[in-house]
Design a protein around this nucleic acid. Structure first.
Lengths: 112, 112
DNA sequence: CCAACGTATGCCCATATAGGTATATTGTTT
DNA sequence: AAACAATATACCTATATGGGCATACGTTGG
């Protein structure tokens, strides 16, 4: 029912991902690293798994989770479209382009 | 109760933002552009407003909404931390760094 | 094979949220 | 001031979600 956007809307799940970014972890390792109960961790991992943001690998009786960052790319792509609206670098570029456009108009001189 | 991550977890709200990215719009304009009822639009705009992702400006009896992209920066910052895990460009960089590290170890030659 | 470990899941509750419809609110026009 | 336009909000319902707890499931070590 959810997508990556929903999955990372939960702060706890972002914390889990941040931990996994440092390398794969078992469920109990995550339980100790973050301050959550084991069922909570497992449930959040399930959501992350369902949207493909984490992968699982069996290791004996443990299950090792790791990040599948590629699933986060749609988020990056979407929000990057707004970068020009806050970045000073892009603001400067926009200013140049605007000025260029204005000068083109003036050079054309339709009426004067 | 929510933050920017929650606000954009809703697909409709992302659509609203995408429209506003093209310039400020009144509520009714959004109603026509997207296929939502006026109360739906107003409610979503309220959420977006509360997390600071949009700004409002009164214009006669209308209210003009615009994007405040700076509020999206935390999302961009967070997800950018994972970019190296999917980008080929960063993968190549990582490979170079790994190799460099390995060579350093070999140069040191602790045991052989 | 059995016991203990590591993990997943089912259940219950409280809360949050979205959709739908009606209505209140605010500003405008005559 | 009254009628109207543009928007916000209240209310209801259905559904989703998280926390807490108990328990089921799968694996391995003795």
């Amino acid at each position: 029912m959810s997508d990556a956007f929903n999955a990372v809307a939960e702060p706890r799940r972002r914390e889990i991902l941040d931990q996994l970014a440092g390398g794969q972890r078992s469920v109990n390792e995550l339980v100790e690293l973050l301050d959550l109960t084991q069922p909570q961790i497992s449930k959040h991992l399930r959501v992350l798994r369902e949207v493909g943001v984490v992968d699982v690998r069996g290791d004996g009786r443990r299950r090792l989770y790791s990040v599948n960052a590629r699933a986060l790319k749609p988020i990056h792509d979407w929000v990057s479209g707004y970068e020009r609206l806050w970045s000073e670098r892009f603001e400067a570029l926009d200013a140049v382009l605007d000025r260029h456009k204005r000068e083109e108009r003036e050079d054309a001189g339709d009426d004067v």
